[in-house]
Amino acid sequence: MRRTYDIDGKDFSVAGAASSDFKVLLKKLGIPGDVIRRVSIAMYEAEINTVIHGGGGKCEAEIADNRIVISFIDQGPGIPDIDAAMQEGFSTASEQIREMGFGAGMGLPNIKKYTDDFQIQTVVGKGTTVTLCINL
């Protein structure tokens, strides 16, 4: 089963709508609660990042027999230093985003913490694809 979402990069108030919809779907399918929680947190962090840093994009979420794979694809500025971005506390978020409660440099480390596999493909000036995988 597959779901595709457009991620609006201009309206921060609707950020998280994709993660919310997918969480409802997982509940309907009877996926175990601990898996839903891990998927929800990782997906929401990645969705927020796509809005904040990627300027919006697309999300493709697939539920397979033995795992859930979710990709966020943006055409934003890319990540110049992935190692730095993976460090807790490192953030390039604006003051405006910090005032909204994000930008503490916990997003990518948090995604890694809650997923079984986590890949980042990024090209500076062209965009980023973040792929999360959680085993069932």
Partner: peptide, 8 residues
């Protein structure tokens, strides 16, 4: 986003 975070 406070509500969204709580939901997740």
């Amino acid at each position: 986003q406070v509500i969204r975070t709580a939901e997740m």
